[in-house]
Every structure is written in structure tokens, then in C-alpha cells.
């Protein structure tokens, strides 16, 4: 049982519904979760189970319908509470790599005098030192996502939210970035909540994987991934336990996907729910 001061995030009976009446879409319901400081938690679940909505709720981009959500930041004034890596890189195309980083650093609680040193260190860490003055349209997809990754790390947030950041990358690039993310995290040990569809990715990165049910999402099972750290993404795949964990989560998810398909064929859940949520979110914003 962790000490309560160790808990950075606590959610209790959290619900999110978009719209009202018969057209309402329940994104997730009755979610309960505690996350320890420095923990790496991955959320996996079938499409439309509310993973992204949960992350957006944690980021303050969506408001919960009911339930409580508390984030216990330490010394909020002197540190950066939260950062997020989005599915799309979200870099500002008119700013070069350096200025994209500088832009968030300026808003963070980090002295101006340290900005250059931080930018150089992170660019070096992800092998982009030579691309400091490049604009996003001059970078490949993988490079842009690397910048997006270090943009979140460089402000040293207490809570780092990652919404399928590698979903648009090819397998090779994804592997490289998994390793990079592990290295960055090993150094900084921020609390990370990482949403993904990719079970391999979740087991490779996380201390814990929360498997979600088909929409509306609930937590179905918690899987502890206590593989030794620091991890090597290639070596980890040779571990028999890794394979077993992936298979066990896959079976869980298969069951949920079948349930989702059954619901869909009964007309209780529509395949366009994600689109409808996006539209309703637009209205709410």
C-alpha cells in the first residue's frame, strides 16, 4: 500500500458523457485509479473506449461529467505541473526546432538562463543537434515526433501525458523512439500516463498496464510489468514473460473488441462514436 504522499494522481468514480438525451455518448464511466509519483502507466483498450478522452480530461482539455479527479503537484509555482505529447506532433510550423522548445520553456517555471543549455542537452539526447534551426516542414515524421517528445520532457513536468504519440510512425521508427523515451524517462523519472493501442508498446514501456473495456470504457484489469529497468526494447522481446504478458493482454482486448462489435451490431454503440465525440467536443470547446 503506497503512502498517500506518493500518490500524484487519484481518480474516483470518474465519468465522461458527451451531449444529452438519446444522442449522448458515454466515453468512460466509473473509473478509479491511483498513480504513484514516478510511475509509468499505460492505458490500452479498443477504439472508442475513452482512453484519449480520459487523457484529455487529465490535461484539463475536457471536463469530467461526474466523479473526482485530483492531481497532487509538488510546489506548483516552482515546477511545471503537466505536459502532453499529442498524436499529431503539434509543433508550430513557423518556429524552428529551437524556438518550438524555447516557446514552452518560456512559459515553464525555468529560469531564462538555463534555456539554451536545456535545449542543447535534449537535442543532443535525441540526435537532433544538427537540426536546431530546421523548421518542422524540413523534418521527417519521426524527427518531428522526437521534437514533440523532448518539448514535453524539457519543461520537466511532474505529470507527463502521452496520447499515442507514435501511432503514425513506422515500426522501425517506433522502436527507436521507444528506446529513446525509456532513456529520457530513466533519467527524469516523471510520472507518465501513456495511451496506446499497441500492446507491445504498453508492455515495453510501462510499469503497469491498465486494460480498458469497450465503450463506455472501464478499467477491466491491471497488469504489472515488473521487467527490470533500464530496459532495452530489443532484449525485452527475448524475455518469455514479456511474450506471455503481451498474449494475456491481447486475449483481454480480443474479448473487448468482440464485445464492441456485438454492441455495434445491436446498435447500442455506433462505429461513428469517436467522430461524434470529436464534434461534441468541438461544441463544448
Amino acid at each position: 500500500m503506497p503512502d498517500s504522499s506518493d500518490i500524484i494522481l487519484r481518480i474516483d468514480g470518474l465519468d465522461k458523457r458527451f451531449g444529452e438525451g438519446p444522442d449522448a455518448v458515454q466515453a468512460f464511466e466509473d473509473l478509479n485509479l491511483e498513480v504513484r509519483r514516478g510511475e509509468f502507466v499505460c492505458l490500452v483498450g479498443p477504439s472508442g473506449c475513452g482512453k484519449t478522452t480520459l487523457l484529455r480530461t487529465l490535461a484539463g482539455l475536457d471536463a469530467p461529467s461526474t466523479g473526482t479527479l485530483s492531481i497532487d503537484y509538488e510546489d506548483k509555482e516552482k515546477t511545471t505541473p503537466l505536459a502532453m505529447v499529442f498524436q499529431q506532433h503539434g509543433l508550430y510550423p513557423w518556429m524552428n526546432v529551437e524556438n518550438n522548445l524555447r516557446f514552452v520553456l518560456k512559459a515553464a517555471a525555468i529560469e531564462n538562463g538555463r534555456h539554451d543549455e536545456i535545449i542543447t542537452r535534449f537535442l543532443d539526447a535525441v540526435g537532433l543537434a544538427k537540426f536546431r534551426r530546421f523548421y518542422p516542414n524540413q523534418l521527417s515524421g519521426g524527427m518531428k515526433q522526437r521534437v514533440s517528445l523532448i518539448r514535453a520532457f524539457c519543461v520537466y513536468p511532474q505529470l507527463l501525458l502521452m496520447d499515442e504519440p507514435f501511432v503514425f510512425l513506422d515500426y522501425q521508427n517506433r522502436m527507436v523512439l521507444h528506446q529513446l523515451l525509456l532513456e529520457l524517462w530513466t533519467e527524469s523519472r516523471q510520472t507518465i500516463i501513456f495511451v496506446t493501442h499497441n500492446i507491445n508498446e504498453a508492455v515495453t514501456l510501462g510499469d503497469r498496464v491498465m486494460v480498458m473495456t469497450a465503450g463506455p470504457g472501464r478499467f477491466k484489469r491491471e497488469v504489472v510489468c515488473d521487467f527490470p529497468r533500464p530496459r532495452n526494447v530489443v532484449e525485452l522481446r527475448k524475455n518469455a514473460e514479456f511474450g506471455k504478458t503481451v498474449v494475456s493482454i491481447t486475449e483481454d482486448l480480443k474479448e473487448e473488441i468482440e464485445k464492441a462489435q456485438a454492441l455495434e451490431s445491436e446498435g447500442r454503440m455506433k462505429s461513428g462514436d469517436n467522430d461524434r465525440i470529436s464534434r461534441m467536443r468541438g461544441l463544448e470547446v
Binding site: 482539455l61 503537466l82 502532453m84 499529442f86 499529431q88 503539434g90 508550430y92 515553464a108 470547446v285
Partner: peptide, 20 residues
């Protein structure tokens, strides 16, 4: 929309959002 969401998450000021 993502430009505004990034700004919101990183707590960029309203003035800076307008200007930058």
C-alpha cells in the same frame, strides 16, 4: 485546434497565444 491545445497544456499566456 491542436495549436491551441498545446498552448493550453503548456500554460502559454493569452497574450503570447495571440502574438506567437
Amino acid at each position: 485546434k491542436i495549436h491551441f491545445e498545446v498552448a493550453r497544456v503548456f500554460r502559454i499566456s493569452r497574450m503570447e497565444v495571440f502574438k506567437s
